[in-house]
Design a protein around this nucleic acid. Structure first.
Length: 466
RNA sequence: GGCGGCUUAGCCAAGUGGUAAGGCAGGAGUCUGCAAAACUCCCAUUCCCCGGUUCAAGUCCGGGAGCCGCCUCCA
């Protein structure tokens, strides 16, 4: 089956055809570094990670850009409040962001451009827009002239006449020719403090939407394959990006737009006042594993809103444990019997997994294929009807699946290994003496330490709980 | 008010008009000193409600209810 994605621009699933065969150029909206990213932000980044990994799985060379928004109202407000420079204020959040994506095993993009180091590129776009009659200047502010861009609204299917003049438009912006026009460049004002750039356009700072146009076109070209982000960015952010980019370049900006739905927490919109607003760090501090969080965020198809619950996180950890136990048990299985069934099972799993993800990243279908695979191979293993060659074929499929899902939990170095070995030995001795009370109490002790024991025909095995 | 999405078992969640995947939880077994892991079996006559189209509807159409969003700097 052909690889298909739901393209917001077309409002339907479409076959994916890259501009250049074998390559995908992808722009993914990144974080505004005024705070630690929250669990909802990571839902988007995990979706983009799955997209990236599946494209690579399909054999595409992926060139991905993720921007860091380090200049906007919130970062200005933050650095002023702390009395530090903009860079001093945003730096720790940038560092934290990279730590967090590593924690969640989100693959690194090829480029992470920062808005503040791309001001000249943004100025160039504004100059082109002015030259093309699509932007105008009032008192040092530059605005995009929506009336002059007839296709405005094509992404979000917004009818401009239906837009209310909202309360969120600041009074000083009523000087715009039309309330719908949006800022490309904002002249310096007192509130901006020390944050400004001296440019051909005057002293000021860029509007938010402009950075994505400037940085995407710089690294990916004026016309590239895909652009993704949260559904809330569809309008106005992405609509404005299209207007700016196409208005400046004169050619089509992006072929495929993909938007992920929001995450809600315990059935409610995440908000600080409700107390269900979580950063990744806060959830880790509660004792949940990054792997389980990754699994939970990954396991719901990206266009469905995802209900994040702690019960769900527990269930995710269990599923993940099953996946990891399967891997480990398979690796340790020596091979037995005549075989004959397993390779067909493995081939089917690989095929169905790919089929699921090819269909607009239908992860539920893909995961169902994985769990069917696990059950079938485990059955053959328990029936001693799995040869060493068949085991290796199954492991290859598993590794290929893992290159996309990355659910494999690396055996973390256990710091108190000798202590555990010691207890395991003591329990084995007690068992030998049929002193089961002692043996069980040692096992309880190990359980409390997060160690799970398995008595197998090959002896006692122990592992750390995922 | 305008626009969009969603509603399937206790929870999470697939589902191309042809008779309800998968995961978690739960129940019964096999294995085990007991567990763990693993396997086997069971667990939705029914898909928010009401109409309609059809030989056939969770899927299509109409109406209603509820939930989550967007409507000018939120992933």
């Amino acid at each position: 089956m052909a690889l298909q994605f739901f393209n917001t621009l077309a409002n339907k699933k479409e076959d994916f055809v890259p501009i250049k065969e074998g390559e995908v150029r992808l722009y993914t909206c990144g974080p505004t570094v005024y705070n630690h990213a929250h669990i909802g932000n990571f839902r988007a980044y995990i979706f983009e990670d799955l997209l990236r990994r599946h494209l690579k799985f399909k054999g595409y060379k992926v060139e991905q850009v993720m921007n860091l928004t380090d200049i906007d109202d919130k970062t200005i407000k933050g650095c002023k409040a702390q009395g530090v420079s903009l860079d001093e204020y945003t730096r720790p959040f940038k560092d934290a962001f990279f730590e967090d994506i590593d924690t969640l095993k989100i693959e690194r993009a090829e480029h992470y451009p920062e808005a503040t180091t791309h001001i000249p590129e943004m100025v160039e776009i504004i100059k082109k827009l002015v030259a093309n009659g699509l932007a105008y200047e009032i008192k040092g502010n530059y605005y995009f002239k929506i009336d002059a861009f007839p296709t405005y609204g094509k992404l979000a299917r917004i009818d401009l006449a239906g837009l209310k003049a909202g309360a969120r438009i600041a009074t000083d912006e009523y000087e715009k020719e039309s309330v719908s026009d949006f800022a490309l460049w904002k002249a310096w004002s007192e509130e901006d403090g020390t944050v400004f750039w001296e440019t051909e356009l005057g002293k000021g700072r860029p509007g938010w939407h402009l950075e994505c146009s400037a940085m995407s076109m710089k690294y990916l070209g004026q016309h590239f394959d895909m652009h993704t982000g949260g559904i809330d960015n569809k309008f106005p952010h992405h609509e404005n990006e299209i207007a700016q980019s196409e208005g400046a370049s004169g050619e089509k900006f992006v072929n495929y737009w993909m938007h992920c739905a929001h995450l809600i927490v315990e059935g409610k919109k995440m908000s600080k006042s409700v107390g269900n607003f979580f950063t990744l760090r806060e959830i880790l501090e509660k004792g949940y594993s990054a792997s389980a969080i990754r699994y939970l965020l990954l396991a719901t198809q990206y266009r469905m809103s995802l209900n994040f619950t702690f019960d769900g996180l527990d269930a995710a950890a269990k599923s993940l444990q099953r996946l990891n136990d399967f891997w480990r048990n398979l690796e340790e299985f020596a091979g037995a019997g005549e075989g004959g069934e397993a390779n067909a099972v493995s081939e089917k799993a690989a095929r169905e997994f790919e089929k699921g993800l090819d269909d607009d990243l239908n992860i539920s279908y893909a995961l169902a294929a994985v769990f069917d695979f696990i059950r079938e191979i485990n059955r053959l293993r328990s029936e001693n009807n799995l040869t060493a060659d068949e085991r290796d074929t199954a492991l290859d499929v598993l590794k290929r699946i893992n290159s996309v899902l990355d659910f494999k939990v690396e055996e973390a170095a256990v710091e108190n290994e000798s202590e555990i070995e010691d207890l395991v030995q003591k329990r084995a001795d007690a068992k030998k003496n049929r002193d089961f009370a002692t043996a069980d109490s040692i096992r309880d002790q190990l359980t409390a330490m997060g160690i799970v024991l398995e008595d197998t025909p090959q002896g006692v095995k122990w592992r750390k709980k995922v």
